[in-house]
């Protein structure tokens, strides 16, 4: 995408949370403390701009665990580039959400 300097602080925060392994809407809400009315529209716009992409969990896994399937998000290559630029602009983001190797499912 290459629109690195354009992300707002909130959008950068959500992108950072997804990058850190908070890969569904509710976990992003829990991590960032933002309300659902902010997180879900922001994630939809990030996906529209090609910074993240979503994928539905396989039905078999969800059925085995007796719960509905979830929609998972992950950061794209363009999203990673944008996040790197955003971290230079908002350096505190790294401290607010440390990068984790594991996904917080």
């Amino acid at each position: 995408m290459g629109a690195e300097a354009k992300l707002s602080h909130t959008a950068a925060l959500i992108l950072r949370a997804i990058s850190a392994g908070y890969i569904y809407g509710f976990s992003v809400m829990e991590m960032t403390g933002l309300p659902s009315g902010t997180v879900y529209p922001a994630m939809r716009r990030l996906e529209r701009d090609g910074l993240i992409q979503s994928k539905w969990e396989a039905e078999t896994i969800a059925t085995a665990e007796q719960r509905p399937p979830r929609k998972y998000y992950k950061v794209t290559r363009a999203g990673k580039t944008t996040l790197e630029a955003s971290l230079k602009r908002y350096p505190l983001l790294e401290k607010m959400i440390p990068q984790s190797e594991e996904e917080h499912v």
């Binding site: 509710f26 309300p35 659902s36 009315g37 902010t38 879900y40 529209p41 939809r44 716009r45 529209r48």
Partner: peptide
Amino acid sequence: FVAGAFRDAYVLRAD
């Protein structure tokens, strides 16, 4: 949480 769905719906519609 559910109240946020209304805002999300409005934003999606506008987008």
